Simulated scan of single mutants.
Amino acid sequence: MSDAGDEDDQARLFREAIGQVRRIAPTPTPPRKPRPRPLARMAQADERAAASEFRRALQAMPIGAGDVLSHRVQALPVGVFNRLRRGQFSVQDELDLHGATAAQAETALRQFLRDAQRSGSACVRIIHGKGLGSQAEIPVLKNVVDRVLRHRSDVLAFHSATPAQGGTGAVVVLLGAR
């Protein structure tokens, strides 16, 4: 029993030595780091498939230097498209692809369209050049621009610019809400 008595004495001495105690309020647990955004694997797979299809289409039917780029979705009224063709829309942003390789142009164009969409731009101009100085027999950048624009769901219509805005060396694009 002396062991139990010694323990009681030691506990009593300890309490006397430290004095009065008060309970500390529990500290809240720190917030967790936010979870990383999930990867859009299906969207990435779709992008890869579209890029592959795009490259096949680029090789299948190239557009010539003097050819006019023109496309509209069925839902866009013909009158609106005709206004675009005549250059009656105010261009809100512009991308110049001169000097870019096909891969650089494709990446820059996709990023430019994404940024234009986020900023709310409805009409943009893309300068691709006529391709007269191209090493290839076809205007590479013009073909890249045509194929990318045709495969984007946010592009309502596009048409080669009026002569005053760059003619067949540029294209004016109408963007819709995504």
Rank of each mutant, 00 (worst) to 15 (best):
S134T: 11
I138R: 15
E53W: 08
S160P: 11
V145S: 01
L39E: 10
K130D: 04
V68G: 03
R35T: 13
A100R: 15
T29Y: 10
H98W: 06
H98S: 10
V145F: 00
R125M: 15
P34E: 10
S160Y: 04
P36V: 12
E106R: 08
L84M: 05
E94L: 09
V124L: 07
S153T: 11
G64T: 14
A170H: 02
R32T: 07
V172I: 14
Q104P: 12
Q59W: 01
L156E: 06
V155K: 04
A43D: 10
R56M: 01
D8Y: 14
V145M: 00
E137I: 12
H151Y: 00
A136F: 04
R125N: 08
G66T: 08
G87H: 00
D96N: 11
P34F: 11
G19S: 06
D67A: 09
S119M: 09
T162P: 01
V78G: 12
A105T: 00
G99D: 12
G99S: 10
V91G: 02
L174P: 04
D3E: 09
D154I: 10
A136Y: 03
R55P: 00
D154R: 08
F112L: 01
V148Q: 07
D6A: 08
M42E: 14
K130F: 06
K33G: 10
N143C: 12
V78N: 12
L13F: 06
A136E: 12
E106I: 01
G66H: 03
T29S: 12
L132N: 05
I127C: 02
Q74R: 13
R83P: 00
A60L: 07
G167C: 06
T101G: 12
D67G: 00
Q104L: 13
A57S: 11
G169I: 01
R118H: 10
A51H: 06
A45S: 15
Q135Y: 07
V140C: 08
D146W: 03
A40P: 11
F158C: 02
Q88W: 08
C123G: 04
K33Q: 14
T162A: 06
P30S: 13
C123I: 11
V171Q: 03
S2K: 08
G131R: 03
V148I: 12
P31D: 07
R152T: 03
I18M: 05
P30H: 05
Q165T: 02
A122W: 06
R48I: 08
L149C: 06
D154M: 00
V78S: 12
M1D: 11
Q117H: 15
S153A: 15
L13A: 14
L13D: 12
R152G: 05
P62V: 05
S70H: 08
R125L: 14
H71D: 10
K130W: 07
K130P: 02
L149W: 02
Q111G: 13
T168H: 07
R22Y: 07
